[in-house]
Design a binder for these strands. Structure first.
Lengths: 353, 353
DNA sequence: TCAAAAGTGTTATCCTTACACCCATGT
DNA sequence: ACATGGGTGTAAGGATAACACTTTTGA
């Protein structure tokens, strides 16, 4: 199947990464049948014989004639599809690499999507779509360290990645890959940095260890008319331990989003968009832990958050399940206008590295 | 002049914000004649009678059939136009609001640009374009506090903005605007936060105080066939103190970029992409100060940077101008793999606010 | 009475800030 | 000699991390 002349055009779509936390689980909204309106069979070309994952991020085309801004366009179709009103919304990244959608090779237009992150208080879904909530860590089992370091890290990821990197022929590339490994997975002197979600995902993809990598290799072969590549059955077994495969590059998009949210947690009070207006300190902590994928030290967390002026007591108490009833707190919006820049110069250059 | 049916289409372009620091001045690359290939007179419609600033950010259309990724496309035409090889490059934001280019109203396509920041060591320009370096603070005189608080802040910006906000009729809007003012310009309890470049720019625009706001009001009137709005000559005088006007929303894009760079300085070692491979600690400090728009405490800066393991001495000395010759340092690339996540939990939730 | 969670107190350590002071070089 | 910038020492204050410990409730 030869490559057609690539279409010059590009279509702009919107990808929504909608995050909520309930029952100590960070969840994102996914759609089960790959229904992105871009990819009608006609547009795709005929190379539609491969099997792709049915799990996608919510996607909608952007119609400039209807929507004044990208964000408004997003709100509109998310509401139609899910009945959700979005709270905090932030632009994530614009994804436009060739072959994000491998069907491009068969003549489809370039798929450009602008990703947006939205944080919501989880509510029941309504609306036309087939959206549902799914645990983030189904897609990234290695990112949840709340019950200790996940076994998959030591038993599969680190050994296999190290072996892969060691066998790279070209010396410079090998060494730089090994350095990336050490940074992303904390193999050398470095420790695990919870923000580097994307870097970890990319290395796993490059090493051919996750479902998308195997799928894409097949597609490339199919489209360029080569025979099906031999994928070791062992590789397929491995991939099963490395999370649920998503359509196209959606898992990459999601990895970008999780990394961003984790980073943002540290310097902007975004958690509160995931919580009801009053909450106990434990509620708050569990939500932060869920997103961060780490356990926090309870007493210190409380002090940080209270002394830091982030929250204030309401005087009310929680009608609770077990144990002593906790005080209900609320977010102090005033902190937004209180950020001191601290005495001399740019605050904390220490963290430059 | 009636509004035509808006074109459904969108065109994707790339905007480059190319930053270098020399002689303690942060400079960006600008183009003097508005030469973005999108806006041929034919595409614009006939409503081309207004005067726009000739100062633009480098812009190039993105051709998906030629370039595998946005970033590669960017490298390509930047090199053609300027002869510059880009070092550190990072995606900034995607701008797609309606009427970014007011000519849209007259039937032009929606202008979607993906902005990229590039940090380079300044070198002489070559290439086909008419690009040149210009001091960032020509566009944002209120952002450079190295010689103390700029007079324009106390004498013009704060009083005029406060007056403007006070006269907003609707109570909620007035109060939220006043809060935004206090956060952005450190008027109330808050201190000036150097990262909030965009927020400050937006308030000045909303208040109609800068050139772009006046221009856009005129254009809107011209296109919809209304009579030229009466702009107080005082407003035009004020605008002269508030920096050089740029074409379209380019100054907004630039504000976004500067805010991002300032933020990034604090937690990623990006400064080193602006410096030669060896440099004195004073060199380093001056570059950080130039971008941050603040003076830093010398001794502490040095300790932070040396003890933090960011740089290491080379043993060589600077052939200097005045004073004791300084040791030359180099960036320690190893820090990239050393970021410890610090004991318990997410590092420094303190800065959440 | 026990388990479970809330909440308080205390300490060692490190980082930041702010001073004061000395060193090497060119003019 | 002195101006200019390079470079060191030290001490106060604050934030963090790691303890141990008490309190209040439901089952």
């Amino acid at each position: 199947m030869p490559i057609k002349n690539a279409d010059q055009s590009a279509v702009i779509g919107l990808n929504a990464i909608i995050v909520a936390v309930t029952d100590e689980v960070p969840r994102i909204l996914i759609v089960q049948r790959a229904a992105h309106s871009l990819a009608t069979p006609a547009q795709r070309g005929e190379a539609d014989s491969y099997e792709d994952s049915p799990v996608t991020l919510p996607f909608g085309p952007f119609d400039p004639s209807q929507h004044r801004t990208l964000e408004l366009g997003l709100h509109k179709w998310v509401e139609q599809q899910t009945g959700l009103g979005l709270g905090y919304v932030e632009q994530l990244y614009t994804f436009a690499d060739r072959h994000r959608d491998p069907r491009e090779q068969a003549g489809g237009p370039r798929l450009v999507s602008v990703g947006y992150i939205a944080l919501v208080r989880q509510v029941p879904l309504s609306g036309a779509g087939e959206a549902e909530w799914q645990n983030c860590y189904d897609f990234f089992p290695w990112e949840d360290w709340r019950e200790g370091r996940p076994k998959v890290v030591d038993e599969i990821i680190r050994p296999k990645l190290q072996l892969w990197a060691k066998n790279i022929d070209e010396k410079n590339e090998r060494e730089s890959t090994q350095e990336r490994l050490s940074i992303a997975f904390g193999t050398g002197t470095a420790s695990w940095d919870f923000d580097r979600v994307l870097e970890r995902y990319e290395l796993l993809y490059e090493a051919g260890m996750i479902g998308e990598a195997i799928r894409d290799a097949k597609i490339r072969a199919a489209i360029s008319g080569l025979s099906e590549p031999q994928v070791a059955s062992e590789a397929i077994e491995t991939a099963k331990f490395l999370g649920t495969t998503m359509a196209l590059d959606n898992r990459r998009v999601l990895a970008t989003a999780i990394g961003r949210v984790r980073g943002k947690l540290k310097y902007r009070p975004v958690v509160f968009d995931l919580l009801p207006s009053t909450f106990t300190l434990l509620n708050l902590q569990l939500v932060v832990e869920a997103l961060g994928g780490v356990r926090l030290h309870k007493q210190n967390f409380r002090r940080l958050v209270v002394n830091g002026g982030l929250v204030e007591p309401t005087g009310q108490r929680d009608i609770q399940s077990r144990g002593r009833p906790a005080e209900l707190f609320r977010f102090r919006r005033e902190v937004l206008s209180e950020r001191p820049v601290s005495g001399v110069g740019l605050p904390s250059l220490r963290t430059i590295g």
